[in-house]
Design a protein around this nucleic acid. Sequence first.
DNA 1: TACTAAATAGGAATAATTCTTATATGAGAA
DNA 2: TTCTCATATAAGAATTATTCCTATTTAGTA
Lengths: 146, 146
Amino acid sequence: MNYSELANVLTQNNLKVTPQRVAVLEALMSLKDHPNADAIKEFVHKNHPNLAVGTIYNILETFCEKKIIRKVKTDRDFMRYDIEMHRHHHLYCEECDYIENYYDEELDKLLQEYFNRKKIPNFNIKDINLQILGNYNDHNPIKKKY
Amino acid sequence: MNYSELANVLTQNNLKVTPQRVAVLEALMSLKDHPNADAIKEFVHKNHPNLAVGTIYNILETFCEKKIIRKVKTDRDFMRYDIEMHRHHHLYCEECDYIENYYDEELDKLLQEYFNRKKIPNFNIKDINLQILGNYNDHNPIKKKY
DNA sequence: TACTAAATAGGAATAATTCTTATATGAGAA
DNA sequence: TTCTCATATAAGAATTATTCCTATTTAGTA
């Protein structure tokens, strides 16, 4: 995605186009494994060494409000961010803290049918996310982030 | 659960029985809504005003290692703890940050069958947790914690 | 170009959690 | 019971992710 495409994403969400926002958006698209604020900082600092950390948090919060990204939580202490907004679930590798997106329409259909049938009293379901915990067979240390 | 029953839980997990651990265990069993460390501190301080906060974190970490409790995170900022270790999922109320346990054997069976059939390449599933996001119809402000 | 609301930089403040170290204690051994 | 020692705790300092504050800058519009 080039600059004007990134800028378009912002414009379409009624956000002013700033170099900082474009840089953070680019970082979110480039970084795999659901980066935390620090990983995003590292990435954007390559080209924008003066971009303030507080600004990154501001931008991430703004993106969340506009539903451009989503927060992902693990057992650890910091927030991580996910730019993929198509329906998906998460694989959590317990050994390397890698998080991978898991897409499965059949599963989604199964869940949707199930909860249409079996309602939860007094509760309106807006979203269902599966946390699938486990570990990779071909555990690849390259994936390790910490 | 009385003192000796609580102590038994610790003994069965090869943990020394200390008043602090018993107090934290009691707090975890008494407090609903997946307390955070602060709520546990408040509870145990009624009877053990000198119990150090660091000790509470130590104990919670020990309990996690022994699988007596489990960590749960929301979009908010602190860790919360769940003593219910029977298979269950979580309802997250987006309006009041209440977390409720959701038990459904039929659902568990459905998921188990599904993933037995449809394996994920190179990934060993150890656990599956549904995060069911939404809000209560009869939204009760009493449930609000923050 | 000028204007204005919004965004950012920079750094201080906050607060949940972790770390450190001296002291205390539970549980088994004698 | 008393002794012993590995382990647990208290107390508070340290860490650190995130938020807050405010002066300055800037994007978008007229």
